[in-house]
């Protein structure tokens, strides 16, 4: 059976869509991904986070994160009245199984999800002695597990506590912004699993990305702005008590 040009033109998009699904499970690299077309960040909406821990569980399953260590985690804050310099904070097992009631009444209470901020001027890549941790052209900070010496200088240099030492691989380890997913057009595991849309991956180079409108209309902050790390995880409604 020969196909007419018209038939091919109609079939191609369907075939492309189907191909995307086929690629979904196959461990290949992303042939059509151009790094310089993207600049990755994330929007974290404090007003929407319910502390369910789905993101922490999803990340640990997607990335084989060892028990007791966290590429992402959720913190619960309790602020008494005007004492924003003295919040009570907890994060039981990183919030992986949610948060048991803590008996707090009154005050201001909320959840803060945290992960690597993929800083533009990251102090961690600055201190790596061998170039084992680096920035990609699309703004993701990654670790080369086959090159890292395990000196742990980067772990010391990160102001956000998002890095850890992998207990069996003996290299530094942290959130990769699910690079293996976003380079294939998928979203990160944590954003996929979040039931309320508190976490949303953002491509800052894409003019149609909803984050641009969001940043214009909401009060947004990054963590520890005084350290000028160029963090790209933007928090909506971040309270002054958040460390």
């Amino acid at each position: 059976m020969t196909l007419t040009r018209r038939q091919i033109l109609l079939l191609l998009p369907a075939a492309a869509a189907a191909w995307d699904f086929v690629l979904a499970g196959t461990p290949e690299d992303a042939p059509n991904y151009k790094m310089t077309d993207h600049w990755w960040g994330m929007l974290l909406d404090i007003a929407k986070c319910i502390g369910c821990g789905s993101c922490v569980r999803a990340c640990s399953m997607e990335n084989e994160v060892p028990d007791g260590y966290f590429r992402t985690w959720v913190e619960r804050y309790h602020v008494d009245d005007w004492h924003i310099e003295n919040p009570t904070v907890d994060s039981p097992d990183g919030g992986k199984e949610g948060f048991p009631a803590n008996g707090k009444t009154g005050g201001k209470n909320f959840f803060v999800p945290k992960l690597c901020n993929h800083c533009t001027d990251s102090p961690c890549t600055q201190v790596c002695p061998v170039g084992a941790t680096f920035h990609t052209a699309d703004g993701v900070v990654l670790i080369d597990y086959n090159y890292c010496l395990g000196c742990r200088y980067c772990i010391q240099a990160c102001p956000y506590g998002c890095r850890f030492f992998h207990p069996t691989r003996h290299t530094a380890e942290k959130c990769t912004l699910c690079y293996h997913r976003i380079s294939k057009g998928l979203t990160t595991a944590c954003c996929e699993a979040c039931p309320t849309g508190a976490r949303q991956l953002a491509d800052l180079k894409n003019p149609n990305d909803p984050i641009h409108a969001f940043l214009k209309t909401h009060t947004v902050q990054v963590l520890k702005p005084h350290l000028a790390t160029g963090a790209k995880m933007f928090y909506n409604g971040l309270d002054g008590s958040v460390r």
């Binding site: 499970g25 084992a132 996929e192």
Partner: peptide, 23 residues
Amino acid sequence: YGPYRGDALQEITSRPLVYAGHE
């Protein structure tokens, strides 16, 4: 691509997917 081992990018992107994505 920069002051790092270029092959690392391919090693990282070739990780298997565990979550399929809602689509």
